[in-house]
């Protein structure tokens, strides 16, 4: 039972900036929220492999091919770290996976958009990973120890993801007319969806207050979104890319960049499953999972047989 006493003691630990470890007492709701949030994060890394993986075989130079493949592989690694840390809460990876490929568990909506040209790969590195870094830098300070540690590792590895995308986009933005066109077009398509990556506005975000009180998060969706916009405006300008928002304007009073209305209808629609790629993403993940079943089973069967043989021999 989550008695008042225990809850107070728990909150006190959080307020003292202590980290919560797997075997520590924690409110049931804290555990549930963490499992939901961490597994969603993990699913996002895995589904995120698909739009980028779409360009591995078509990357325009061997060097870019290696970079992209290494990056997509890192996403698998990050998904793995995150599932691992979710498993410390008593969740089962296979069950978590089935929750999103057959059930209703969510992953980041950003990956329900298609990668149409190679410039999309650069923009994913710059904008999508840029947004992810803003988020994960905060999560690296999360109150749950294993989640914080997973994010520290992810942040360390992810810095190259953003840099490589930004570098190549800068090259394209200063390149041939065709390259410039692709670069600007990709930014036009991805800009608004990346703003949505931080989640709904604070007044429509039911979980935020609780997560902040427990220091799972330390900043609100809108705060994170604002720091992302401030950063990206500068970076876009530096490489001659225009962000597709006529209302972007520096606000002298706040010291931040004001931006236009985010198309939230689109956001809720994509979350509901009506994005351009939702169905294909899930289909691809299901296919991999189902076609892998006989492989996973064979390996377990081999291990069982081997163990039996060893027991007999001794």
């Amino acid at each position: 039972m989550d008695t008042r006493e225990k809850l107070d003691a728990f909150q006190k630990r959080i307020d003292n900036d202590e980290k919560i470890e797997p075997k520590d007492w924690m409110p049931d709701r804290y555990r549930k929220q963490l499992i939901r949030m961490m597994s969603q994060h993990a699913h996002s890394e895995i589904v995120g492999m698909l739009p980028e993986g779409n360009w591995i075989t078509r990357a325009p130079s061997l060097e870019r091919k290696l970079v992209l493949l290494a990056k997509v592989q890192d996403e698998a690694g990050h998904g793995l770290y995150l599932y691992s840390s979710t498993e410390t809460l008593g969740a089962r990876r296979q069950e978590l996976v089935e929750d999103y490929i057959y059930g209703t568990a969510k992953y980041s909506s950003i990956f329900n958009y298609p990668t149409l040209t190679y410039a999309d790969i650069c923009v994913i590195g710059w904008l999508v990973d840029g947004a992810a870094i803003v988020n994960q830098t905060m999560l690296a300070k999360s109150s749950y120890g294993p989640y914080a540690r997973a994010n520290i590792r992810i942040c360390r590895e992810e810095s190259f993801h953003k840099k490589q995308g930004y570098e190549m986009l800068a090259k394209m933005a200063a390149g041939t007319p065709e390259q410039r066109r692709m670069a600007q077009d990709a930014v036009n398509r991805w800009w608004w969806p990346t703003l949505m990556m931080f989640g709904p506005p604070d007044d429509e975000s039911p979980n935020s207050a609780e997560l902040i009180r427990w220091k799972v998060k330390t900043k609100t969706n809108d705060e994170l979104r604002q720091s992302y916009v401030d950063q990206m405006v500068m970076e876009a300008e530096a490489i001659g890319i225009k962000l597709p928002d006529p209302e972007l304007k520096y606000n002298n009073n706040t010291g931040h960049w004001d931006f236009g209305e985010i198309p939230w209808d689109e956001f809720w629609n994509v979350i509901k499953g009506n994005g351009p790629m939702n169905r294909e993403r899930i289909k691809a993940r299901r296919k991999a999972y189902e076609e892998g079943a006989w492989v996973r089973e064979a390996a377990m069967e081999y291990a069982r047989k081997k163990q039996l043989r060893e027991e007999k021999a001794s």
Binding site: M49, G53, V72, A76, G79, L80, E291, G292, V295
Partner: peptide, 8 residues
Amino acid sequence: AGHAPELE
């Protein structure tokens, strides 16, 4: 990439 039988 993204389609293997298991994450590892």
